[in-house]
Each structure stands twice: as structure tokens, then as C-alpha cells.
């Protein structure tokens, strides 16, 4: 498949501060790509560069193989759903959606049909005359999506479109959005800082931090093989410990040596050791290398979340069975539950 959007060595600085650090990204046609990262990492900035609202200080923005750095936003075949919707308050629902079509000077009939179709798609038929301010967050959300989609862009940029919605509505909208993307066959570039959302919706996830792209890959790959401790932690909360790789398949942490399945780190190398909370089981303390005191137990629906303090670390453990608070427990995991990762530079 061909790349529809590419960023080559794109860098942005504001007031001498690096916001995007020469990022490279290729997005294939009809793909659902999600930019995932903590607040302030540069997700919106990346979208603004693709939308044309911001010019990179250096690097190239490519669209279907052509450099579009100097193409103004209103000439790009890209539409945006803004982080706070940015609907036009002085226009009603119909006119908001029809805005782009009117600019293109389409006939009144065609505008009516296309807006009607869009309203049906986002489930807002009958809301044509409504005032924007009188809509709920979810409805505004859907107007914003309809306003962008009605122009039939090749690429739709969505900046945390579900951020303001409650959990239930969010789940519904996630499914709706995914369905729309598939039925309309449009490339979606989607921004979120919710890892679950990223994993459920995307074809490709791009993990960002401090203006850098840390990892690009399918959700399953990112989850199972995070490149470093940050990605691992961001994708799902993890226990991250300082360790020393003594040799292949032998690692030392918490004052003990453990067997593991990783190799190729050399000998006596400092590494990050990542163990997922759900991979740990609680055992009687007697014959375990690591023992600790249960500090807290929280019911999470499917499982209990427990914090167990040992001498030098606070462990996060997920289990379907609860332990007694203040009791002593042993912490147990197998060799393939231990993930060894290179320390991040810096």
C-alpha cells in the first residue's frame, strides 16, 4: 500500500523549546493511525502540521508523494475535528455542516442531500435547525465529525474527539467512528492519550513522548513487545525495576538472580526489568525470593489491584483473589513474565 501522508525529519520549536524533534512518520492510505502519548508530547502539533496550520521549522510534509509544506490549509484535501470541536456558534446544525459545501458553491439541492446523508450517518436527523449551544457534548462531537466528513476528505484528522464524553458514550462513539472509517474508506489520523482507546480502534499506534516517536506498530505488537519501559508503562501500568543483565538469560534485581528468556544484552549491562501486574501471582512467603507486606487492596471489577511493599520497591499486582491487608506475602512470576529492556537514553 502507498503512503498517503509522510513526515520526513519534521522539527518544530517554540520559543527555543523543541516541540517536535525531527520526527519521521509514514501513514498508509485508508489506515486508522493513532498518535498516543502523554499531555504536551506534541500530538496536536503533529496534527496541525498535517492540517497546514503550522509550518515545520525544517523537514518535509508529503501528501500523496508531493511536498505540501507551503500549501495553505484551505487548499489541502484534509479535514480536521478539533480538540474542542470549534463549531460555529452563530450557525445552526445544518449550516455548520453545510459550511464547507457552501464555500465550494455547490447547488442548494446537493447541499441538502449531502448534509442530510451526513446527519443520518451521525444519527442527528431532525436536528437541522438546532442551535449549537443547545446540543450535548456527544451531539456537538458528532456535528463536528459530520462537518468534516461531508467534504469527503482523503484524510481526517481527529484531535482527542472523545475527550469530553463520559465512559459509556465514549465506548459507543469509538465503535461508531471505527465503523465510519471502514465504510467510508478514509484515512483517520487520531490523537488520544488514552491507551485503551488507541489499542481498540487503531490499525497502527504511534507512541510519542517529548516530541519524539518512540514506537510505531500494530496494537498487539506494541502491547506485547514494548520497545522500552516508558512504552510498556504507558500502554499498561507496569512494575519497572532497575536490573543488571549478568549474562544471557540471567538477570539480577532486588538483590536476587532470576532466570529469564532474553538474550543479546551483553554481560553486566544495566537494564530496565518490566513485569506486568497481571503476570504476578501471590504465594505463601516461605519459599519465595521476594516477600512484602500488603499495603492496599482495591476492587476493580474483574480483579483486585494490590500494592505490596518490599524493602526497596512498591509492587503493583492484579489478581482475582484478594490478600489480607498488612499480611506478608510472597511475589512469584515465571521466567517468561520478565521483560528486559534497554535503558532509555538521557
Amino acid at each position: 500500500m502507498e503512503n498517503i501522508v509522510s513526515l520526513n525529519d519534521v522539527a518544530v520549536t517554540f520559543d527555543g523549546e523543541t516541540i517536535l524533534n525531527k520526527i519521521n512518520l509514514d501513514i498508509r492510505d485508508k489506515e486508522f493511525v493513532t498518535l498516543l502519548g502523554p499531555s504536551g508530547c506534541g500530538k496536536t502539533t503533529t496534527l496541525r502540521i498535517i492540517g497546514g496550520f503550522l509550518k515545520p521549522d525544517s523537514g518535509d510534509v508529503m501528501f500523496e508523494g508531493k511536498r505540501i509544506n507551503d500549501l495553505p490549509p484551505y487548499k489541502r484535501n484534509v479535514n480536521t475535528v478539533f480538540q474542542k470541536y470549534a463549531l460555529f456558534p452563530h450557525l445552526n446544525v445544518f449550516e455548520n455542516i453545510a459550511f464547507g459545501l457552501r464555500v465550494k458553491k455547490l447547488s442548494e439541492d446537493e447541499i441538502k442531500t449531502r448534509v442530510g446523508e451526513m446527519l443520518k450517518l451521525v444519527n442527528l436527523s431532525g436536528f437541522e435547525k438546532r442551535n449549537i449551544q443547545n446540543l450535548s457534548g456527544g451531539q456537538q462531537q458528532r456535528v463536528a465529525i459530520a462537518r468534516a466528513l461531508v467534504n469527503r476528505p482523503k484524510v481526517l484528522l481527529l484531535d482527542e474527539p472523545l475527550g469530553a464524553l463520559d465512559l459509556k458514550l465514549r465506548k459507543e462513539m469509538q465503535t461508531e467512528l471505527k465503523n465510519m472509517q471502514q465504510s467510508l474508506e478514509i484515512t483517520f489520523i487520531y490523537v488520544t492519550h488514552d491507551q485503551e482507546e488507541a489499542l481498540t480502534m487503531s490499525d497502527t499506534v504511534v507512541v510519542m513522548k517529548d516530541g519524539n516517536i518512540l514506537q510505531v506498530g500494530a496494537p498487539v505488537d506494541i502491547y506485547n513487545e514494548p520497545k522500552n519501559a516508558f512504552v510498556a508503562d504507558f500502554i499498561g501500568e507496569s512494575n519497572i525495576l532497575d536490573g543488571i543483565m549478568l549474562r544471557d538469560r540471567l538477570v539480577q534485581f532486588c538483590g536476587h538472580e532470576f532466570e529469564c528468556v532474553d538474550s543479546g544484552f551483553g554481560e553486566n549491562t544495566f537494564v530496565d526489568v518490566v513485569i506486568r501486574p497481571e503476570d504476578i501471582t501471590l504465594a505463601p512467603p516461605e519459599n519465595q525470593k521476594i516477600k512484602g507486606i500488603v499495603r492496599s487492596v482495591t476492587f476493580k471489577g474483574v480483579h483486585y489491584e494490590m500494592v505490596v511493599d518490599t524493602a526497596d520497591f512498591s509492587w503493583l499486582i492484579h489478581s482475582t483473589r484478594a490478600a489480607q491487608v498488612d499480611s506478608e506475602v510472597g511475589i512469584s512470576f515465571g521466567p517468561d513474565d520478565i521483560h528486559i529492556m534497554h535503558k532509555m537514553e538521557g
Binding site: 492540517g51 484551505y74 460555529f88
Partner: peptide
């Protein structure tokens, strides 16, 4: 003012001046 409505108008195909007067 809603943030970004000026940009939203441009996103939907209006030039800068027209965007200003329209939204």
C-alpha cells in the same frame, strides 16, 4: 471565542480573509 474556529473555517476551504468575516 471558541478556540480554533478561525482555523476551522480555513480547514473547510475558506481563505484567511473570508474566514475572518464569516466566522
Amino acid at each position: 471565542m471558541q478556540p480554533n474556529i478561525y482555523e476551522a473555517a480555513q480547514d473547510l476551504g475558506c481563505g484567511p480573509v473570508r474566514s475572518f468575516f464569516k466566522v
